[in-house]
């Protein structure tokens, strides 16, 4: 771990000023915001992240969860994942988000992890974490050791020759399906980014996970008015029942009309790409159809079009196809309540 300076920010303006103050942006590593620290501190201990200054956000008044005039919900960037998942309004209106958060990490980590940090957590690619190996995301231009190597965790969609990493978040898969909006602030002012535009594909610059500028702060995540509370499901497939990242995950949400036909559908995949994977064309397949397996399979085929494995992870393609169908079936039958014991996982 590299020695670093520490600044406890008073408010957003102070945080932004401290981030860009002189001495922060050195060749070794820029200044970094610190939220729950559950990802950043690990990366620092492994010498993957080497910030010269930590700007602690934990005193900022950004931990609230409140309703928007439009009828949606505003999630503070510093609200903890656990508090978000258990918030009554989130549970009742966005059970998909609750389920996705609770499918992630462990209770201890969810208690520390913040919503903003969750969006910005880095890939779990083994090579990214091991400074003894080449990795374009960690040190651009050094090569991608994962290709042709251990790729169980890696992408089947949207990868490039420079990087085949996946984004590991569960929460973000639900946020993508729910069409959340990310609120950003910097010295230049405030702006909003649609969730689909927030994370990016690796291309030839895999060091960038998202489209945020280096000097921006996430202040909130906004959820549009709820449409899918009655028919949603988060299905996560992983190596063990808790405390493992998704091999494949699906956020499925359906709005049904009175006759039981699908009015609109939302589908996003986790564990398969550098960003939560969504294709409006796949969702369009379902619009106006009855919630039946054949249509679900057709949507899966569109969502997975172009999927390509790295041999070790070929299994993710059929796994994802089946998971999409299963998640849609579960959603169609009605949002499941929290499984017994699930909250302790």
């Amino acid at each position: 771990m590299t020695p670093f300076a520490y600044h406890l920010a008073r408010d957003p303006a102070d945080a932004l000023a401290a981030l860009t103050a002189p001495g922060g942006n050195t060749p070794l590593g820029a200044a970094s915001f610190l939220a729950g620290g559950t990802n950043l501190l690990d990366l620092m201990k492994e010498n993957v992240a080497r910030p010269m200054r930590l700007v602690d956000l934990n005193q900022l008044a950004l931990a609230r969860i409140e309703e928007t005039p439009a009828g949606g919900l505003l999630l503070g960037a510093l609200a903890r994942n656990a508090d978000t998942a258990y918030h009554p309004l989130v549970r009742s209106r966005y059970p998909l988000l609750s389920a996705a958060i609770l499918a992630g990490a462990s209770p201890q980590i969810r208690n520390m992890a913040s919503n903003g940090g969750n969006l910005l957590q880095r890939t779990r690619c083994y090579y990214f974490y091991d400074t003894g190996t080449p990795c374009n995301k960690r040190s651009p231009g050094s090569g991608c050791a994962a290709r042709g190597g251990l790729t169980r965790l890696h992408a089947i969609l949207g990868a490039s020759e420079h990087c085949i990493a996946t984004h590991p978040s569960d929460m973000c898969v639900a946020l993508a399906a729910l069409e959340a909006v990310v609120h950003l602030r910097s010295a230049r002012g405030e702006r909003q980014l649609a969730f689909a535009d927030f994370h990016r594909l690796p291309g030839d610059t895999p060091q960038h996970d998202n489209t945020m500028a280096a000097d921006e702060l996430i202040t909130h995540i906004e959820l549009p008015p709820a449409r899918y509370a009655a028919h949603s499901a988060y299905l996560k497939l992983r190596d063990r029942a808790s405390y493992a990242f998704a091999l494949v995950s699906v956020a499925a949400a359906l709005a049904l009309d009175e006759g039981g036909r699908i009015v609109s559908a939302r589908l996003a995949l986790g564990g398969v790409a550098h960003k939560p994977w969504r294709q409006p064309e796949a969702e369009a397949v379902l619009a106006g159809k009855p919630p039946e397996a054949a249509h679900f399979a057709a949507a899966a085929a569109v969502l997975l079009a172009g999927a390509r494995g790295e041999s070790v992870n070929d299994f993710k393609i059929p796994m994802a196809r089946r998971a999409i169908v299963r998640a849609l079936e579960v959603a169609a039958a009605g949002t499941p309540g929290p499984a017994c014991g699930e909250e302790e996982r």
Partner: peptide
């Protein structure tokens, strides 16, 4: 899991 090209355990 070992990456045999690197001769190294990775996870």
């Amino acid at each position: 899991h070992a990456d045999h090209r690197l001769g190294r355990f990775m996870n």
